[in-house]
Design a protein around this nucleic acid. Sequence first.
DNA 1: CAGTGGTCTAGACCACCGC
DNA 2: CGGTGGTCTAGACCACTGG
Lengths: 261, 261
Amino acid sequence: MGSLPGRLGSVDPTSDRAVFRQIADQLREAIDRGRFTEGEKLPSEAELVEHYGVSRMTVRNSFSMLQGEGLVHAEHGRGVFVRTRPPVRRLASDRFARRHREQGKSAFLVEADAAGGHPEVDSLEVREEKAGQDVANRLGAVRRVLARRRRYLLDGRPVEFATSYLPLDIARATQIAEPNPGPGGIYARLEELGHRLDHFDEEIRARMPSPAEVRTLRLASGVPVIHLIRTAYDTEGRAVEVCDTVMAADAYVLAYRLPAT
Amino acid sequence: MGSLPGRLGSVDPTSDRAVFRQIADQLREAIDRGRFTEGEKLPSEAELVEHYGVSRMTVRNSFSMLQGEGLVHAEHGRGVFVRTRPPVRRLASDRFARRHREQGKSAFLVEADAAGGHPEVDSLEVREEKAGQDVANRLGAVRRVLARRRRYLLDGRPVEFATSYLPLDIARATQIAEPNPGPGGIYARLEELGHRLDHFDEEIRARMPSPAEVRTLRLASGVPVIHLIRTAYDTEGRAVEVCDTVMAADAYVLAYRLPAT
DNA sequence: CAGTGGTCTAGACCACCGC
DNA sequence: CGGTGGTCTAGACCACTGG
């Protein structure tokens, strides 16, 4: 207990700044300055109640702020801890290069190799369904599609949930409709089917996750998601796949190269 | 008041799911289903206290959840409202094409034109300073740099805060060091100085904003930021600029084109 | 078991908004 | 001015964790 005053100051109840904000400020600064290190347990609510002479609600309000900022996370029965940075997957701008497919690697494995982590795929689901408005537009007024849903994990942690949509006239009754699409992934199969890939268009958004996404990706509070929609085009200009991906934002860095043309 | 039961149900205090979560669920669903429309005021805390027969803290806890999800926002003295989607700036993958610069337009103006909004730039600051570790690495072990800071607004709303770092041996005493870099922006000036641009590398992350970023971008709670770091290379392979950009995530869609090569 | 965070109550006073 | 959200108190009981 004698260590608390050494790392945290006191609050001014007459200040314009709300007390719980002052407490949050002090905790934030202490974390930024490294007085609390990654993964370290913060003082318990009870300790802070005593240290600052405030009610428990006030302390909890401070913690709630820091959680919303993604700085700390609470574990029931254990304490509140400084958030640790998870290993990051870097998506390189050449991740769909043909040379990777020709080595029999899917894009996910290429990236996981680079990160040195252990990749897994689960929750596989392949089915035919009616295309949503947005997907239909991107695929060029297609009605029904083959949908491939899967979740990716890195070192046991879910990091990404993706759905690929392909026009039925291309994918039906091919290996793309099988759970395991074979070496090189569905892009390799598309090329074998005569759809030589020309380019991919990607759209990126970031937002807070829906409750369903929080469950699927086991997201801590204060972690946004990156929403990426990729459309693959063959050399004849036809959109042959739309991939809708939601990623845990704290697990990714996306890299792109833009020509100055 | 008679309309509340029509749009909202009741809670089960004996359920495993916490009461404030049940209330948040019902409000979320009502919003999703359009029973409350964008910009509409939700029932006041007092009304919900009466409707559900719970304490005010419980209701506030529900609102707090929805705020964290970016679904609603509170206005002191007015009420809690369904968040409205702001106009979005779409950053196209050809936004740095030379043809735009040759028309005398900076990248920001090109994008704003496309969005049909009214663009502004403020908080301009140009100074020489010591490069941070990361910037120094990206620029190739440069010590001191010219830093150009500015904030972009769209229709009066701050949407982006950016800092460009340029090696002093390139930028010092040129128009790049002036507040107004002239037509086509600093990239046009770099090319005039003999640094013909070859490509740009961009790195994208998403995270919750720091308190400083909340102020600068006037961010509502539940809005993440997109953190973009761009490095510009000339045809000799030298890094001639690093631009560090923080964007309000709800105001942007980023688009990229990847070759299938 | 003691210590931790999770939920909830029933109040209180304040600051801000719009009429 | 009345209605709104913002802050805060002083309790209470619960569920989870760890030894």
